[in-house]
């Protein structure tokens, strides 16, 4: 029977935790959900949030530490989780068969993300040099955030297209379940 409730999912996950390779792990096979898509939520949300707080801090000019400090933490946590997301993204990319258009799209996604990552490293270093408890930001820092986020959005969108337009990672773990449903439904199926 296929799990539909959280306790049933938990039981299935523990059963699956045995025999897995590093690539399986990075692709999120034991989880039944691509790990990359799970991790990227954080940088994807936190870096634009950092930009929003940067803009507020820059426009309001009232030395409100809560704005700059929040942005600082957003960038930091974004960098940490983005670092974790890199190997998982590479693992997913190597799973795309050569010659499929998604492969090129994946490369572009990776290139843009690298640029965003590098920009936020520079940005964070600049802020770190002044110390996080400085209640104002410089124009350079604001610009760095803005450019990086302007690159992040198209890049994340490409990542989304890989899933929703090209189906990368879709039915990677559920294909055995669906195969049985298809056979039970009288469908013609190929070799497993």
């Amino acid at each position: 029977m296929r799990p539909t409730t959280p306790p049933e999912f938990a039981r299935e996950l523990t059963a699956k935790a045995k025999h897995l390779t590093l690539k399986d792990f990075l692709q999120g096979k034991p989880l039944g959900h691509p790990l990359h898509a799970f991790l990227v939520h954080l940088p994807m949300a936190l870096w634009p949030t950092a930009l929003a707080f940067d803009i507020l801090a820059y426009v309001r000019h009232d030395n409100d530490l809560s704005l700059t400090l929040t942005a600082w933490w957003c960038i930091l946590v974004g960098l940490i989780t983005a670092t974790a997301a890199i190997p998982t993204g590479i693992a997913d990319w190597t799973g795309i068969r050569p010659g499929r258009p998604a492969r090129k799209l994946g490369l572009l996604h990776a290139a843009l993300n690298s640029a965003v990552f590098a920009l936020f490293i520079v940005n964070f270093t600049l802020r770190g040099l002044r110390g996080p408890y400085v209640p104002s930001i410089t124009r350079t820092e604001l610009l760095l955030s803005a450019i990086a986020v302007a690159l992040l959005f198209p890049s994340a969108y490409l990542g989304g297209l890989l899933v929703y337009d090209h189906g990368i990672g879709v039915a990677r773990t559920s294909k055995h379940y669906w195969r049985n449903v298809a056979i039970a439904g009288g469908a013609r199926v190929g070799e497993d």
Binding site: H41, G160, Y164, D165
Partner: peptide, 23 residues
Amino acid sequence: FRHPLHPMLVHFPIGLFVISLVL
């Protein structure tokens, strides 16, 4: 957009709630 809106938007509540806990 050739991409559903819900999965685009959910990054934000997830990320914001996590950073809120971090702070």
